[in-house]
């Protein structure tokens, strides 16, 4: 069991290494002639106006909140799904009631109009 996790640990080292090497090769062989105009950030041919890392209104922060709820509840459902074959009918019904509560939450959010892009 630990062996498989060791393999994944090694994979976590190897996976970033391959694209990193692919980027380091052109660091050596590619030309490098920076000049001030080339280094400007692109803004439709104009000089960049003001700070680029600006704040703007994010229309979907409520979406992110709903996402959080749904994702956590989906994680709760995974053990239920794994053990499904051994569950009694009562536990299956319990799981379905849980999903219905989830669905009710979605309907509530829908009726409260937080799912509208505004």
């Amino acid at each position: 069991m630990l062996d498989t996790w060791l393999y994944i640990g090694i994979f976590f080292l190897v996976a970033p290494l391959i694209p990193a090497v692919a980027i380091l090769i052109p660091k050596v062989i590619a030309p490098r002639k920076p000049n001030p105009i080339k280094l400007e950030t692109y803004e439709c041919g104009l000089e960049t106006v003001g700070d680029s890392q600006v704040q703007f209104r994010v229309q979907y922060y409520i979406f992110a909140l709903i996402f959080l709820v749904f994702d956590i509840e989906a994680v709760f459902l995974f053990p239920w799904a794994v053990a499904f074959k051994q569950l009694s009918l009562f536990m299956v019904v319990e799981g379905i009631i849980f999903i219905l509560i989830l669905l009710a939450g979605l309907v509530y959010a829908w009726r409260k109009r937080v799912l509208e892009w505004a």
Partner: peptide, 13 residues
């Protein structure tokens, strides 16, 4: 081709 292209890091990045 893409390996021999210049990689530009823009100002302020």
């Amino acid at each position: 081709k893409i390996m021999t292209k210049e990689m530009i890091t823009p100002d302020g990045a």
